[in-house]
C-alpha cells in the first residue's frame, strides 16, 4: 500500500459513538490495563453511573474496583487521596461540580497541597471526574461551570475534554500522571454522537489544540463551548470572516503558547467561557493575551461568558444565561470591526 492508500484506510476506520460511550470506553480501558486503578463514587456501580457512563463496569470488574460509595463527597474524595498516597490509582467520580463543593476542602487543602507541604515527598496520583455545565434545565444547584475555580489552584491539573478524542483519550494519561487531575465532562454533551478513530487511545494533556484554522480572529473555547465555537466559526465563514478556533483542553496549567501563537497571527481574540465573567477563566485567558501579545492586537479582547446569575430553570432564561452560537458570532463580528 502507498502512504495515501494507508491514510485513506486509516481514515475509514472510524466508529460512531457518543461522548458517554467514549468516557465509558476510557474507564473500561483504564480498569483493564492498570491493576491499581479503581473507580469509586456515588452510584457508579449498581445504578450504572448517574449519567450512565459506568454502566456494566460493576459486572466486569466487581465491587472492589467499581465501588459504590454512600453520599459523602468529602469522605470518599479524601479516601481517594489517601488511596493514591497508598499506591493506588483511584478514579473518583463526583456526580456534578456543584456537589464537588462538599469535597472542596479535600481537593484544595489536601490533594493540591500534599506534594508541596511534604517537601516533595508525597504526590497524589488521583483522578477526579465530574460533570459540569448548563443546558438541561437543572437550575441553580446542578448547572454551574466551576472548573475555572479549580483552575485557580496550583497543584492540580484541570482538563476539559470538548471532543470525542479527548473524552476517550484524556483519562489514561491523567491516570498515569503523578499529580491530581480533575476531568470535567460536559453534562449536556453525553448524548452527542460523532466519529472517532477506531483505534483512538490516550492523548497528551499538556497542550491546547487548534480545531479550525483561520486568519481573521481567534476564538478560544473549551469543553462544551468548543462545538459552539466551531459552529460560530462556520457561520462566520459564511459572512466572509475566517475564524481560528483554539480548544484549551487543559485549563491548568494553561498552554499560553498555543493561544498566543494563534492571536499573534490573527491579531484578534474572543474568549468563550460558560463560567461567570468576573474572576473567571476567561479573565485569565484575556489577561494572558494582553500580557503576551498586547502589541499584536488590532482590537480589544472580547469575552462571551455566562451571565452573572445562578443558572435559572426556565428554558429561555437558561439559554440566555450561557453563551450561544449567536453570541459568539456577534462578538466575533464586533471584534473584526463589522459588528
Amino acid at each position: 500500500m502507498t502512504t495515501t492508500e494507508k491514510e485513506r484506510t486509516a481514515e475509514k476506520a472510524t466508529v460512531t459513538l457518543t461522548f458517554r460511550e467514549a468516557f465509558h470506553e476510557a474507564l473500561r480501558d483504564a480498569l483493564q490495563r492498570d491493576p491499581t486503578a479503581f473507580l469509586m463514587g456515588e452510584d457508579v456501580g449498581r445504578y450504572g453511573g448517574c449519567f450512565g457512563v459506568s454502566r456494566g463496569l460493576l459486572d466486569e470488574f466487581g465491587p472492589e474496583r467499581v465501588r459504590d460509595t454512600p453520599l459523602s463527597e468529602s469522605g470518599f474524595v479524601g479516601a481517594g487521596i489517601g488511596a493514591a498516597l497508598g499506591g493506588m490509582h483511584p478514579i473518583v467520580e463526583v456526580m456534578t461540580v456543584n456537589f464537588s463543593l462538599l469535597a472542596l476542602d479535600q481537593i484544595v487543602n489536601n490533594a493540591a497541597t500534599m506534594l508541596h507541604m511534604s517537601g516533595g515527598q508525597l504526590n497524589v496520583p488521583l483522578v477526579i471526574r465530574m460533570t459540569t455545565g448548563a443546558g438541561r434545565q437543572l437550575a441553580a444547584q446542578h448547572s454551574h461551570s466551576l472548573e475555572g475555580w479549580y483552575a485557580h489552584i496550583p497543584g492540580i491539573r484541570v482538563l476539559a475534554p470538548g471532543t470525542l478524542a479527548d473524552a476517550r483519550g484524556m483519562l489514561w494519561t491523567a491516570l498515569q500522571d503523578p499529580d491530581p487531575v480533575l476531568i470535567f465532562e460536559n453534562g449536556a454533551q453525553y448524548g452527542v454522537a460523532g466519529e472517532l478513530a477506531a483505534d483512538a487511545g490516550p492523548v497528551e494533556i499538556d497542550h491546547a489544540a487548534v480545531r479550525r484554522a483561520g486568519d481573521d480572529l481567534t476564538v478560544i473555547a473549551y469543553g462544551g463551548s468548543v462545538p459552539r465555537a466551531l459552529a460560530a466559526a462556520e457561520e462566520l465563514a459564511g459572512d466572509g470572516v475566517s475564524a481560528e478556533v483554539v480548544d484549551l483542553r487543559t485549563l491548568r496549567p494553561l498552554d499560553d503558547a498555543t493561544v498566543l501563537d494563534s492571536v499573534r497571527r490573527t491579531h484578534r481574540a474572543v474568549v468563550v467561557d460558560e463560567g461567570w465573567r468576573s474572576g473567571g477563566l476567561s479573565a485569565e485567558v484575556a489577561a494572558r493575551i494582553v500580557e503576551g501579545a498586547f502589541y499584536e492586537l488590532d482590537a480589544p479582547v472580547a469575552r462571551v461568558c455566562g451571565a452573572e446569575v445562578p443558572i435559572p430553570y426556565a428554558k429561555h432564561l437558561e439559554q440566555a444565561a450561557v453563551p450561544q452560537v449567536a453570541d459568539v458570532v456577534s462578538a466575533a463580528l464586533e471584534v473584526v470591526g463589522s459588528g
Partner: peptide
C-alpha cells in the same frame, strides 16, 4: 419561585416553605 427554580426548588415565604434544596443534606 418565579420559574427560576423548577421542580427541585419550590420556595414559598408566605407558608414558610424554605425549599426545595437539591444538595443532599444541604
Amino acid at each position: 419561585s418565579r420559574g427560576r427554580g423548577g421542580s427541585m426548588h419550590l420556595f414559598d415565604a408566605s407558608t414558610r416553605f424554605y425549599g426545595g434544596n437539591a444538595i443532599v443534606a444541604g
